[in-house]
Design a protein around this nucleic acid. Structure first.
Length: 272
DNA sequence: AGTGCGACCCGAACGC
DNA sequence: TGCGTTCGGGTCGCAC
């Protein structure tokens, strides 16, 4: 499941392969995937070219001359590059063909991913981009920023870490890992966190995301990033999907609970 | 405004 | 073996 590190990896990989090639055709096989008007989507892409790829939170931002193509991979979205004469595979929902007959194909088993084509001036006013909070690694992401954001949140801290408007880019895997790093119980009420605890969360997010990006993300379940790049961060996971296994700090058993409906893994001894 | 929860999806894992 | 059921996971939209 792509989180910030996976998206960063996809961005970096695609940048080496698809920039500055004229788009000659666009095919959409699952129309609900496109949030903007489908005909406008095709018309505006054809004839243009990608000149850069950026990322904001878990959103990929493909820059064209006049537009941005926004793409969210949700759980299982992947991009593949294939020759245009290769047969369409199951779950390939959007195909962008470049003039050298290379296809950028969007593959999504569960059809959860979304794309949106917007004009350049719209970017900062587009809701999904505007609402993103600070990213791990941003100097402005400090303990006091976080504590202020948590002040009126009665939800468990685990749920709040998944809120993209506070820290942008954390998903279920890294939220579990960050709380283990910070030695904080996932059920602890967000508003009750001390400045010191907020500091440990910020530090954990910075350290873990940096390391995950360096390793190309986490490959887990059905997710492998595009183009044969395989994430190796799963070897670094300490608690996620480790229920019944021993805590690397104290040797007590990792447990699995539900928080806000989401699987949550933690060490009850280290994270009291 | 903050919170809770179903819907969106489909394949894998599970139960019988 | 084979069938039906449950689960997962990010985000949105709706109800409270």
């Amino acid at each position: 499941m792509p989180e910030i590190a996976e998206v960063e990896t996809v961005k970096n990989t695609l940048k080496k392969q698809i920039l500055n090639k004229r788009i000659k055709d666009v095919k959409v096989y699952y129309e609900k995937m496109i949030e903007s008007n489908i005909n406008t989507f095709k018309r505006d892409l054809i004839g243009d070219e990608f000149i850069d790829i950026k990322r904001r939170g878990k959103w990929l931002i493909f820059e064209l001359h006049n537009h941005y193509l926004l793409s969210h991979l949700r759980m299982e979205g992947k991009f593949f590059l294939k020759n245009t004469n290769e047969e369409l595979a199951k779950h390939e929902h959007v195909v962008i063909t470049f003039e050298d007959n290379l296809d950028l194909r969007y593959h999504d088993t569960r059809k959860f991913g979304r794309m949106n084509l917007i004009s350049k001036e719209e970017l900062e006013n587009t809701e999904c981009i505007k609402k993103q909070g600070l990213e791990p690694g941003d100097k402005a992401l400090t303990a006091s920023y976080l504590q202020k954001k948590l002040k009126n949140k009665s939800l468990p801290i685990k749920s709040v870490l998944l809120d993209q408007s506070i820290i942008s880019g954390l998903g279920n895997i890294y939220a579990n890992e960050v709380l283990f790093y910070a030695l904080i119980n996932p059920l602890k009420k967000a508003s009750s966190l001390t400045l010191e605890e907020c500091n440990r969360i910020v530090e954990g997010a910075n350290v873990i995301i940096k390391e995950a990006i360096k390793m190309g993300g986490t490959t887990i379940k059905s997710y492998t990033s595009s183009l044969g790049v395989t994430g190796r961060f799963q070897t670094k996971l300490k608690v996620h999907k480790k229920e019944g296994q021993l805590c690397p700090h104290c040797n007590n058993k990792i447990v699995k609970i539900k928080v806000g409906g989401r699987s949550t893994y933690y060490c009850p001894n280290c994270q009291k």
